[in-house]
């Protein structure tokens, strides 16, 4: 079980109404899960909890068997660095780093992912370039370029390469395709799938766009799962 949530209730502070209440939710290893959630459905809160930025007030969020609420904030940061790849909606890249440097970024913060990346390629840069090639960012000229000159689609593929660098077990993508054209969304997702399959990662893909739903193994409608109700949600 990669993710195991039970009896979760999250409030911003003591006494405030719960913004996210999930009785139970499980994700098995290697699964491609689509979480359907409009903004305000508690989506951001759920992702923060999964990434270990915030912790559950009551109940438990287990990722890879580790109850995150039992870890201190530094340990959770380490945990995220070691096990989770994260893709934002847009503007995923550090503007002052090159494409390759951006992809290698997780290895600066996680020795585990660094070792795993080195196990696959002779050095970090080779591995970064390999991932970029797999994600159709083949042109070597692109690799040294300033990331601000890339198109949105190219930026998202670099972000995906970075999230996959060092083979984390869990990939979280927060509406990564919302800034892409309709026909490029599907190809981007297929690329993600093939890469996740290769490293055996579990993919959690959050989007409000139901048209992508059919591509995934399974769908969770957050609005239905979250018993706090949409109108209560803060974010």
């Amino acid at each position: 079980m990669v993710i195991d949530i039970h009896d979760l209730a999250f409030r911003w502070h003591e006494g405030a109404p719960s913004v996210l209440t999930i009785e139970a939710m499980q994700v098995t290893a290697g699964e491609y899960l689509f979480i359907k959630g409009a903004s305000g459905s508690g989506k951001s809160t759920l992702l923060s909890l999964l990434a270990g930025v915030t912790t559950a007030g009551t109940g438990s969020v287990r990722v890879m068997g580790q109850a995150l609420e039992r870890l201190g904030s530094v340990q959770r940061d380490h945990f995220r660095a070691d096990h989770i790849g994260y893709i934002f909606q847009m503007f995923n890249l550090i503007p002052y780093l090159s494409v390759v440097d951006n992809v290698m970024l997780p290895c600066r913060f996680s020795a585990r992912r660094r070792d795993k990346a080195l196990a696959r390629g002779k050095d970090l840069e080779t591995e970064a370039r390999r991932l970029l090639r797999h994600l159709d960012m083949d042109h070597p000229e692109l690799h040294g370029r300033s990331v601000t000159t890339l198109s949105v689609g190219q930026q998202q593929r670099v972000a995906a390469a970075r999230a996959l660098m060092g083979s984390p077990e869990l990939l979280i993508a927060d509406e990564p395709t919302s800034s892409l054209d309709a026909d490029r969304r599907e190809s981007f997702i297929r690329l993600l799938f093939s890469e996740c399959r290769e490293v055996g990662a579990t993919l959690i893909f959050v989007s409000h766009d139901a048209s992508l739903e059919h591509l995934f193994d399974r769908t969770i409608d957050l609005a239905a799962v979250n018993r706090s109700g949409q109108d209560m949600a803060a974010v």
Binding site: A51, V53, S73, V74, D77, H78, R80, A81, D82, Y86, F88, F91, N92, L93, I94, P95, L105, P106, R108, F109, S110, R162
Partner: peptide, 16 residues
């Protein structure tokens, strides 16, 4: 602030 969030997502601690 976006840059900070990206850094945090790849495992940087607030200390970093």
């Amino acid at each position: 602030r976006r840059e900070m969030a990206i850094l945090r997502s790849v495992g940087a601690r607030p200390g970093h």
